[in-house]
Simulated scan of single mutants.
Amino acid sequence: MPSKEKNLNDLFLHTLKDMYFAEKQILKALPKMEKATETDELKKAFAHHRKQTEIHVDRLEKVFEIAGARAQGVTCEAIKGILEEGEEVMGDFADSAALDAALVAAAQAVEHYEITRYGTLRTWAEQLGLKDAAKLLDQTLAEEKQTDELLSKMAKAVNQRAAA
């Protein structure tokens, strides 16, 4: 039995560590995805998101500071699984007309995970009275949603090419 009862702040910090790990792993995956695609538009989208992800890591470090904690990650099995699945699909569909469709689908799986986590973190930050942290998390959440919308638009074109 734990010696200390866990509270929302503990959960917030754990999830923050989870996202810090996740963003660092995403930073490693995006160049591979960028290299795998032959579509200039998709290459640009992955390159842009890589730069955005670097900003997300910086923001998370600021949120840690606001929360009075050291920036550190904790292994996130969910993102590891999502990224491993993406790597597997990239390998299975390399040099095929469906590769870009697979890359977009893998990227959207990552985005959807991030959207759920950032939305939750923002809400918890608000409830914990960490208004500045909530604002930073909300900025990242908005950017993740924009990326997802862009990927949805791109999916239509790459899916049509894959189906042809």
Rank of each mutant, 00 (worst) to 15 (best):
P2D: 14
A98L: 06
F93N: 10
E65C: 02
T37A: 02
D148S: 10
A36V: 05
L99V: 03
E34Y: 11
A97P: 03
A164G: 06
A97I: 09
L16S: 08
E77P: 02
L13P: 06
L11P: 03
Q146L: 02
R50I: 05
E77H: 10
K80C: 07
E77D: 00
K24F: 10
K35Q: 07
L128P: 00
N159F: 10
Q72T: 03
A47S: 12
T39Y: 06
T116R: 15
H14S: 06
V74W: 04
A101S: 08
A109C: 09
M1D: 15
A134M: 04
E88V: 02
M19A: 03
A45L: 14
A67F: 04
D138A: 08
Q139G: 05
E61A: 11
H48I: 11
Q72F: 03
D132V: 15
V104L: 13
G129N: 10
K6A: 10
E114L: 02
A106G: 09
D40I: 15
Y113C: 07
I66A: 04
K131P: 06
D138G: 00
G68H: 13
D58L: 13
F12H: 01
Y113S: 10
Y113W: 14
F93R: 07
K145Y: 00
L11I: 00
E34W: 13
K4C: 08
K17T: 02
A134G: 02
A164L: 01
A106F: 11
K28H: 12
E65S: 01
E77C: 05
K153F: 03
S96F: 02
K62H: 08
K17H: 02
A36R: 14
L151P: 09
L42G: 15
E88Y: 12
A47P: 12
E23F: 14
K80R: 12
D18Q: 04
E143Q: 08
V57H: 11
W124C: 08
V63M: 04
E61P: 13
G91P: 04
A22H: 15
L137N: 09
R50M: 08
V104I: 13
E23V: 01
L42N: 11
M90K: 03
K32T: 08
A101C: 14
H112C: 13
A105Y: 01
N9C: 09
T39M: 15
